[in-house]
Design a protein around this nucleic acid. Structure first.
Lengths: 199, 199, 199, 199
DNA sequence: GATGAATGAGACTTCATTCAT
DNA sequence: AATGAATGAAGTCTCATTCAT
């Protein structure tokens, strides 16, 4: 019978994860020492290790959280009956999300995870690289092609990849230049979607 | 008058940079120790430090090399009189380049530099983030809009950003999945260019 | 007047000491953490520290218990009027004790205490190293020599040391090889005793 | 091509092993920190780790050295044609060895290894527990029994175990009491050997 | 009395860099 | 110029012990 509630433990985990996210976003996780996390979280070494087994475990927790968030966003994005409208909606939801400064900070982390996933197989599995979205989108595109509403000569998976690239590339550019204009970018993306569906 | 020829020194630098690139691509540069580079290059610690002042200095040299290569590719890509054709040519040149396994290895590095540039201001200046290309392309697009050959309602800089994103996103996806089909992706990109220029 | 009965406290101490003995026997006491003892005893950190002031205090309690047990065995072993018979009886009692698996486990601990006593002066005083037995035996041997029943040319203390060594060496060997044959060893020891007393 | 000779490296290893032996003998190896070894050896952390991969590796090297020394002593001890004389010679050689204060210090270590071998399977294989000696002695005893020169009713292996115990027990007692009289102990052991072989 | 989360000193180890040879 | 042994600061993690609840 624990002395503290499950809520209490959860709050402490949050405290640690949030501290880690802040440190990682600022300095990158390789440059972030456990001492940095202790200081940022206001907890002692022992306390932090009571919640996470290792630094890698914290990184994994942060990655899992991101993964879950992205998965949630994409989850029913394509459930819309009308693909064209669904895509427009998804794009707007996605880029609206990117207006939040807190989310921008977390995106800096996402970029680091992308890189880290290249040399850490264990992390690679926990990093959101858009696969589910790409797969769903490709299926939806293929459907649209069969129904004649989408250009038939393009490979659905390749189209999905380009769509994903448009999102990923923007995340990257925004991470480098936080002030980049979102609206104008979205306008181009919208016109791209329409171009695919024809007049 | 140097004791050893400049060629000799240059060959040694190459040896070190190549070894570093191989290590970085495989393990990421934070996980790559100087010992790893000594072993991979076949040189001693003292020898390596005779050519580079620090690990950061090697990283900078690697980044500079990449930067120069990319700059060269984009340099006259847009010098073509016909923008539409110039873009198609650039895209084909760019993606052909990505068929080379050696280049793919170097691209894994590029992705790491993207991430690193977020927390290392010094490195940020040496990492190719496509700015010159974007600027030139935006200018060219604006010109095309004035001459009526490109959709007038889109922001030229945003269009350039999307174009860049399409390249960056693919580099990312290829780094994760080396087997991704290039031809199908290029076909979509080609059709995108044509969509921008209208029928 | 204590709040809880003395019996209750005693039962808790047992619980802790038993848990510690089990852990120490398995992993050695340096490799046994207090956490291990908490887990093995089923008590909380605070509870254990309510009974023992420190880890060393637990170790001391375990050592004291062993010391008391061995002292009890040897106590009246040599009170017998006939030394030869007394020795045979002692040996049989001692080795019968070593047939008990629980005692064998405790003996693994004894071996650790032997080693630890070399570098921990505080513990050295609480570890049974056979001195009282040796002293008594030497006195008894000297008596037997005066009465002509034991070989006169041997130093009584040295004889006692050899006798002790025969017990200690076996404890060591049994700790390493729990399956070692006790009966055959005892037979040799018996014949050794008889050899000392002559035909 | 190493810059320093193999002798140089060997000397450094010695320096480290000797420092470790001194520390271990004094404080036990669990209480000996790597810092202690750095200080005792006069080398830096990095230097020590250039020769040994870990603390355990140093412990293993120390254990191996002991093992080799003991093996060498016992190696041809029993090669003598006359077992009785061979045993007397071995005993005298063994106990003479124990007169050396440096050897006494190393023996304190041996006792610690005995204990450690109980909970560290990896170390157990590197610790001399007298098996080869015991096996050879048992074989020799069996031979002597067949030729009628040794008491036929005793189990050869048990006799060998008792003989080993007499050595082990003394090592233990001497570790506790460095001043213990060797000559008197040897005299008893000699008479024990003779008792086994009869008049 | 009991709980167990928290503390923080200190353990082991790595690694960028230097410098005598 | 080259070598590679040496340096030592700094990193991650453990664990005996305390104390608010």
């Amino acid at each position: 019978m624990p002395k503290v509630s499950s809520d209490y433990r959860e709050a402490r985990r949050r405290q640690i994860v949030d501290a880690a996210v802040a440190c990682f976003a600022r300095q990158g996780f390789h440059r972030t020492s456990m001492q940095d996390i202790f200081a940022a979280s206001g907890l002692s070494a022992g306390a932090v290790y009571g919640y996470f087994a290792s630094k890698d475990d914290i990184v994994a927790a942060v990655a899992d959280e991101r993964h879950a968030l992205e998965a949630a966003l994409f989850a029913d994005a394509l459930a819309a009956s009308d693909l064209r409208q669904g895509l427009h909606d998804l794009v707007h939801a996605y880029f609206d999300w990117l207006r939040d400064p807190a989310e921008q900070e977390r995106r800096r982390l996402a970029v680091q995870f992308w890189a880290e996933a290249l040399s850490d197989a264990h992390l690679a599995q926990r990093v959101s690289r858009g696969e589910p979205f790409r797969a769903e989108l490709a299926t939806a595109i293929a459907g649209a092609q069969r129904s004649g509403s989408f250009a038939a000569d393009l490979d659905p998976d390749a189209v999905a990849r380009v769509a994903l690239a448009v999102l990923q590339g923007f995340v990257l550019q925004q991470a480098w230049e936080p002030g980049v204009d979102i609206d104008r970018y979205v306008a181009v993306v919208d016109s791209l979607i329409d171009a695919g569906f024809g007049p």
